[in-house]
Simulated assay, not measured.
Amino acid sequence: MRYAQGGGLTDTERAARERIRLQAVVRFESGEKNREVAAALRVSERSVERWRRAWRERGRVGVLSQGSPGRSRLSETQVARLERELERGPLVHGGADQRWTLARVKTLIGRLFHVSYTVEGTWRLLKRHGWSWQQPARRAIERDDDAVEVWKKETWPRVRGPRRSAVPGSSSRTRPGSR
Rank of each mutant, 00 (worst) to 15 (best):
A4C: 09
Q5K: 06
G7H: 04
T10S: 09
T10Q: 05
R14P: 00
R17D: 01
R17G: 06
R17P: 00
R17I: 05
R19S: 11
R19A: 10
R19I: 01
I20W: 08
I20M: 05
L22G: 00
Q23T: 02
A24T: 03
G31H: 02
K33Y: 11
K33P: 01
N34G: 06
N34L: 14
E36S: 11
E36V: 08
A40M: 07
A40Y: 14
V43T: 02
R46K: 08
R46L: 13
S47A: 06
R50Y: 12
R53T: 00
R53K: 15
A54Y: 14
W55H: 12
W55Y: 12
R58C: 14
R58W: 06
G59A: 07
R60S: 13
G62V: 13
G62F: 06
G62N: 04
V63L: 04
S65K: 03
S65A: 15
S65Q: 02
S65F: 01
S65N: 06
G67Q: 03
S68H: 05
S68Q: 07
S68K: 07
G70W: 09
T77I: 11
T77E: 04
Q78M: 06
V79Y: 01
A80R: 08
R81K: 14
L82I: 07
L82M: 12
R84Y: 08
R84C: 06
E85R: 11
L86G: 06
L86P: 01
P90K: 03
P90E: 04
L91F: 09
V92S: 08
V92E: 06
H93K: 07
G94N: 09
G95K: 08
G95R: 08
D97T: 14
D97V: 12
Q98W: 02
W100M: 10
A103R: 11
R104H: 09
V105S: 02
V105Q: 01
K106W: 12
L108D: 05
I109L: 06
L112D: 02
F113D: 09
F113E: 03
F113I: 10
H114G: 12
H114R: 15
S116Y: 13
Y117D: 00
Y117A: 02
G121T: 00
W123P: 00
R124H: 15
L125H: 02
L126V: 12
K127M: 09
R128H: 08
R128Q: 12
W131K: 15
S132D: 03
S132M: 12
W133K: 07
P136Y: 13
R138G: 01
R138P: 00
I141N: 05
I141P: 01
E142L: 14
D146V: 12
A147W: 03
V148I: 09
E149G: 09
V150S: 05
K153L: 05
E154R: 00
T155W: 01
T155G: 06
R158C: 09
R158F: 13
V159A: 13
R160M: 04
R163T: 11
R163Y: 05
R164A: 14
S165H: 10
S165D: 02
A166P: 00
V167A: 07
G169C: 13
S170F: 13
R173W: 12
R173F: 10
P176S: 13
G177I: 05
G177D: 04
R179Q: 11
R179I: 14
R179W: 15
